[in-house]
């Protein structure tokens, strides 16, 4: 298992370097003069030139990329063009909100969706199954930022039950959670249902039942454990979508997280912030993917044993040689 995890971590490094390269390159070629952006229209040409020189903006592309990478390794993402604040400090201050929202939404969605998906697979074609299938079809099709607006209109403005904006405590979490959760729930329900349907027809489920195992154990231990890999895969992907989708949900509910920070800096063409924000979210996504891979190894003994077997083989070889 340890070999498996460390291999995954090593495989992540070139991908992350590639991500930095791609994002840096795309933004490097964006039009506009950063020094002019910082100084404003009133600055003289000479001042703009001086600042460009000072920030190293006149250096060739390769030099700038290398410098960005070097700074990034020390945790420095440059300074905002708008207010000269350190981008990494601003991101570190904001990302817990975004991560909390994404994690809570996914957990909320996954728990309900997996339970509903299992029931709907066991009771295929029942009324409950039809409701779940219908809900997941609608849920996949609803744009979540619009659902958020509708919930604000109904729950906050009409019924005055919950606050419409901000993120200061559990009362503020409910609407964003539902808004975010519905789409993810719909997807997870679908995959749970179809994956469970595939598994519960297998022979080993019949065997488990035939040996008199209790139904709940058959479903949770024998069926779910074999159906869980595609579910986990989807949850991992949803997590990535939740991190990216933060730009929408945080705009709708005025949540002071990383997504809102990104959106606010787009209109100002604050490149270091956009670059840092996108890279940080991609990095978080990478960590989530790593966790998903580790969960694979945990749930599917075939994966981790691939690595164990190699080790055992080596031990056996060694023992043979010693003899």
């Amino acid at each position: 298992m340890f070999r498996y995890i460390s291999r995954r971590i090593i495989m992540m490094i070139p991908v992350l370097l590639g991500v930095v390269f791609v994002i840096f390159t795309i933004l490097y070629f964006s039009p506009g003069d950063p020094a002019r952006t910082i100084l404003g229209v009133t600055a003289t040409e000479q001042e703009v030139q001086m600042l460009s020189e000072e920030l190293g903006l006149n250096d060739p592309y390769g030099v700038q990329l290398f410098r960005y990478l070097k700074d990034l390794l020390r945790g420095d993402m440059g300074r905002s063009y708008k207010n000269n604040k350190s981008v990494s400090a601003e991101i570190l201050q904001r990302f817990p909100t975004t991560l909390l929202l994404a994690t809570l939404s996914i957990l909320f969605a996954a728990v309900i969706a997996i339970v509903a998906g299992i029931i709907s697979a066991i009771k295929q074609y029942s009324v409950f199954d039809n409701i779940v299938t219908g809900f997941s079809l609608l849920g996949i099709s609803i744009p979540n930022f619009w659902l958020g607006l509708m919930l604000i209109i109904l729950v906050s403005l009409h019924w005055r039950l919950l606050p419409a904006s901000g993120f200061y405590g559990p009362r503020y979490w409910i609407l964003p959670l539902i808004t975010n959760g519905v789409g993810y729930m719909a997807g997870i329900m679908r995959i749970t249902r179809s994956s469970m349907l595939e598994v519960i027809r297998q022979d080993y489920i019949r065997t488990a039942r035939a040996k008199g195992q209790r139904e709940i154990v058959v479903i949770l231990k024998h069926a779910l454990r074999n159906a869980i890999i595609p579910i986990i895969t989807l949850i991992g992907l949803q997590f990535g979508r939740a991190l990216g989708g933060a730009v929408l949900i945080e705009t709708v509910f005025a949540i002071p997280g990383l997504g809102k920070y990104l959106v606010d800096s787009i209109s100002a063409k604050d490149i270091p912030v956009i670059q840092g924000g996108v890279l940080f979210l991609a990095f978080l996504f990478g960590v989530v993917n790593l966790c998903v891979d580790i969960l694979y190894g945990f749930f599917d003994p075939r994966i981790s044993s691939q690595y164990r077997r190699k080790k055992e083989k080596a031990v056996k070889m060694h023992a043979k040689q010693a003899n």
Binding site: G18, I26, I271, I274, V278, F285
Partner: peptide
Amino acid sequence: MRTLDILLAIPAILLAITIVTALG
């Protein structure tokens, strides 16, 4: 495929945001 893995590692909407920021 390894090159595309890099693009897959960036949540799609963020990649789109980056490209639109660069192109206008």
